[in-house]
Amino acid sequence: MVATRERLWEAAASVTDPELPMLTLADLGILREVAVQEDGTAAVWITPTYSGCPALTEMRVDVDRAVRAAGFDRVEVRTALSPAWTTDWITDEGRRKLTEHGISPPGEAPRRGRDRSRSP
């Protein structure tokens, strides 16, 4: 079962961002969680970078296709709204790739109001 979950994560994590194709959804911290349910359904949670993100639909389709290609017949791509994404969710690997492509990785995101951003 653990191996299956890993296979699911790897499939979902291989999907690249539509606008920054050198980064994967895992690098960007958009891929939040995966789970293989008892009935075999592959569940994948992704989070929008901002509320109106028009690329989210495309990402859902891409994840769905990648997970199916990895051998899962039943796939559910779900939205995770909380905790809200900030640039702090970009992984070290994501930051390395941004630098490599001439984009300065963002610094620490400001803590605002009662925003429940990821704890360090």
Binding site: P48, Y50, S51, L81, S82, P83, A84, W85, T86, A109, P110, R112, G113, R114, D115, R116
Partner: peptide, 12 residues
Amino acid sequence: AAIAAKGVNELA
């Protein structure tokens, strides 16, 4: 609550 927490970053 989740919609609002996400919106806070944008509104700021």
